[in-house]
């Protein structure tokens, strides 16, 4: 098993009720696997991650990327920079 730090921002932070959470998943789990895991383990996120992009260690990543111990994964809901 590996542990990663998951960060929640904006609407997702409010839904999750926390700005971050330590999540333990099987070694070899991908970003896509983490997406499925979060939707099933965090009831308030169920069905809510469809439009959410994932970043790992401050870079956007594809679902196929595999997680490593201590990765920092951020859930990025639709961004709204600018005015």
């Amino acid at each position: 098993m590996i542990a990663v730090r998951v960060l929640f921002f904006a609407a997702l932070r409010e839904l999750a009720g926390a700005s971050e959470q330590r999540v333990v998943v099987p070694a070899g789990t991908s970003i896509g696997g983490l997406r499925v895991h979060l939707e099933s383990e965090v009831p308030t996120l169920r069905g809510r991650l469809g439009t959410v992009r994932f970043a790992c260690n401050e870079q956007f990543v594809e679902d196929a990327i595999r997680l490593e111990e201590d990765d920092v994964v951020a859930l990025i809901p639709p961004v709204g920079g600018g005015a």
Binding site: F60, G81, G82
Partner: peptide, 9 residues
């Protein structure tokens, strides 16, 4: 910037 930078309003 509007498409990629993680800023929310």
């Amino acid at each position: 910037l509007k498409h990629r930078v993680p800023i929310w309003k």
